[in-house]
Computed example of a mutant assay.
Amino acid sequence: MTRSAVSVVTEDDPTPLVLSVARTLRASARVPELLPVLRGLSGTVVVRSKDDPQAVTIRFADGESRVDHGAAADRDLVLIVDLADRFTIVEVRGSEPTAPLADAVHSVLEPPLPPWRDAATGFWEFTGSDPGMPGQLVVTCEDEQSEYVLGDGLPRYVISGPSHTLARVFTGTDTFLDAVFTGAVSIRGTLPQLSVMAGASLKVRFRA
């Protein structure tokens, strides 16, 4: 058990969705307002994608959240979520949407995003020393017209976008490649750097 008295564990060979849900629960454990909510949860909840067969089962008990792939038959409720939008719940089955368990799980599946600078710092601390990463990451926030520089070496890599989008990308909420290809963020760097940054984004999304 961690110092926060909350443990988030997964099966031995977790699927991407299991890893993503676990990462989100760990993020909630770092939010002071959500930590007691997560610690006090008890019950079995299935989280299922609204668009495809992907599903995970979360078992909450005694301060532990265990995430496994698939939909357990002994679940207390099923949450149908939009995987493209931070596990936004679109339907609740087996309980009223405002029932205590459904409401509590809803809150820990959608923790507030940190400020974009904090998100960028966390991203850099977690991935900046990985092989192939740029020596310096320059983040430009378009709506605040400000720049944040991480690292002091070469080569440089530049990412620009609005504050909310930057926070989503750097926390792994949105994948880096999707944000680039949809134009949500703009970049300045080489193609090999793009590949490395995409890998770093997935590392944060599934391992942070």
Rank of each mutant, 00 (worst) to 15 (best):
residue 57 T to E: 05
residue 70 G to H: 00
residue 105 V to E: 04
residue 89 I to D: 02
residue 16 P to G: 02
residue 102 A to F: 01
residue 72 A to P: 05
residue 62 D to R: 15
residue 159 I to L: 07
residue 137 L to M: 08
residue 91 E to F: 05
residue 154 L to I: 00
residue 197 M to F: 00
residue 117 R to V: 15
residue 84 A to P: 06
residue 35 L to Q: 14
residue 76 D to V: 10
residue 180 V to A: 00
residue 45 V to G: 09
residue 5 A to K: 15
residue 204 V to M: 08
residue 31 V to P: 03
residue 43 G to C: 14
residue 53 P to K: 04
residue 71 A to W: 05
residue 39 R to K: 08
residue 132 G to W: 06
residue 173 T to F: 04
residue 130 D to T: 08
residue 198 A to I: 00
residue 10 T to K: 09
residue 41 L to K: 02
residue 172 G to M: 12
residue 118 D to G: 05
residue 177 L to S: 13
residue 187 I to C: 06
residue 129 S to A: 15
residue 76 D to H: 09
residue 121 T to P: 13
residue 8 V to M: 02
residue 28 S to I: 09
residue 124 W to E: 08
residue 79 L to V: 01
residue 30 R to T: 03
residue 38 L to Q: 01
residue 148 Y to E: 07
residue 164 H to W: 05
residue 42 S to I: 04
residue 84 A to C: 08
residue 105 V to Y: 06
residue 164 H to I: 13
residue 2 T to A: 15
residue 137 L to C: 01
residue 178 D to V: 09
residue 169 V to E: 07
residue 204 V to L: 12
residue 93 R to L: 11
residue 119 A to T: 13
residue 84 A to K: 09
residue 184 A to N: 06
residue 159 I to T: 12
residue 36 P to A: 01
residue 180 V to Y: 00
residue 23 R to P: 00
residue 72 A to N: 01
residue 81 V to W: 00
residue 103 D to H: 02
residue 61 A to S: 15
residue 130 D to N: 10
residue 39 R to F: 10
residue 135 G to Q: 06
residue 31 V to R: 11
residue 24 T to Y: 03
residue 19 L to H: 01
residue 114 P to K: 12
residue 200 A to E: 04
residue 169 V to L: 03
residue 27 A to Y: 07
residue 142 E to I: 15
residue 160 S to N: 12
residue 189 G to D: 07
residue 64 E to K: 11
residue 42 S to E: 14
residue 172 G to S: 13
residue 186 S to N: 13
residue 73 A to F: 07
residue 90 V to S: 07
residue 148 Y to V: 07
residue 190 T to N: 08
residue 140 T to L: 14
residue 10 T to I: 06
residue 188 R to D: 15
residue 97 P to E: 05
residue 93 R to V: 09
residue 14 P to E: 05
residue 189 G to E: 02
residue 77 L to S: 11
residue 25 L to W: 02
residue 28 S to A: 14
residue 126 F to V: 08
residue 163 S to N: 08
residue 115 P to C: 01
residue 99 A to D: 15
residue 177 L to Q: 12
residue 139 V to Y: 13
residue 8 V to C: 04
residue 103 D to N: 04
residue 38 L to I: 01
residue 109 L to K: 02
residue 69 H to C: 01
residue 53 P to T: 04
residue 111 P to A: 11
residue 37 V to M: 05
residue 188 R to P: 00
residue 44 T to V: 14
residue 82 D to F: 03
residue 95 S to K: 14
residue 92 V to R: 04
residue 153 G to C: 08
residue 57 T to F: 03
residue 80 I to T: 11
residue 55 A to Q: 11
residue 131 P to L: 14
residue 69 H to T: 12
residue 145 Q to K: 10
residue 71 A to Q: 14
residue 175 T to F: 12
